[in-house]
């Protein structure tokens, strides 16, 4: 049992006893961990209210080698998630980020780049950035970091370049866009507009800042949300087994 330090985002907390909490943390160095925080519910505790949902903190914890819960011994608050006043959409988007991090990642499987992305996303949501654009970008890049990025401009099966006009076959569980030939006989394939795939490609771009200038119209946004929700529904059951 070794003492470790890590930067962590608090994904969820559950009351364990009168004074203690079980916390699920997404750490930069160790991936997702679940740990016991003894005394965290006391008024005077060593955690300085750092173990609240969506808080960014620096923790010291005892890493158990067995299946048992780790033990958080210290937590220093770095930033609370505090959406600007009246920003309920930003708050719920923050919850959604935590839920995705919890569902898409495994315990003790670190993804520092995903941690940085989540940290940046939560900071932007708290600052009042436009929620749908920021959230869609988070989902797409998170999927890329975790190896689930959908193919957007070439067929996921045969690799053929896809002409981004009209409507295009798309299957999340098949890896993304499909050409006419590869679409045949496949289930769970939907038809999406080329505009949605173009928007997804722009939002997932890590090279430039062009995504910040994208104006997503309501129709494309609706289709995009529907498609991403479907994508997540298809990926998560595979992960959860």
């Amino acid at each position: 049992m070794s003492s470790e330090k890590a930067s962590a985002l608090v994904l969820r907390t559950i009351d364990f006893s009168e004074t203690s909490l079980v916390v699920w943390l997404f750490t930069r160095e160790f991936g997702k961990i679940s740990a016991l925080a003894k005394g965290a519910r006391r008024l005077k505790n060593p955690f300085e209210s750092a173990l609240d949902v969506l808080t960014l903190c620096r923790i010291v914890f005892l890493h158990k080698s067995s299946e048992a819960l780790d033990l958080v011994t210290e937590a220093k608050l770095l930033r609370r998630f505090r959406p600007t006043r009246q920003n309920l959409a930003g708050l719920y988007a923050g919850y959604y980020v935590a839920e995705l991090l919890g569902d898409l990642t495994d315990e003790n499987d670190p993804h520092p780049e995903l941690f940085d992305l989540a940290d940046e996303t939560l900071a932007a949501l708290a600052a009042g950035e436009v929620v749908p654009r920021r959230l869609a970008r988070f989902e797409l890049i998170a999927l890329r970091f975790l190896g689930h990025a959908p193919a957007l401009d070439q067929c996921a099966e045969c690799g053929m370049k896809i002409d981004l006009t009209g409507r295009i076959a798309f299957g999340g569980i098949h890896g993304g866009a499909l050409c006419r030939g590869c679409r045949q006989g496949k289930s769970s394939v939907v038809s999406v507009s080329a505009g949605v795939l173009r928007t997804m490609a722009q939002l997932a771009d890590l090279e430039t800042q062009a995504w910040r200038r994208i104006e997503i119209d309501a129709q494309i946004l609706g289709e995009l949300r529907k498609q991403e929700a479907k994508n997540n529904r298809e990926i998560l059951p595979q992960r959860l087994g």
């Binding site: 209210s49 949902v53 969506l54 808080t55 998630f81 505090r82 006043r85 009246q86 708050l91």
Partner: peptide, 14 residues
């Protein structure tokens, strides 16, 4: 005064 407590207050005020 937690994220969820504040969120609940915000919802009710809306």
């Amino acid at each position: 005064p937690t994220v969820e407590g504040d969120g609940t207050s915000l919802y009710i005020s809306n």
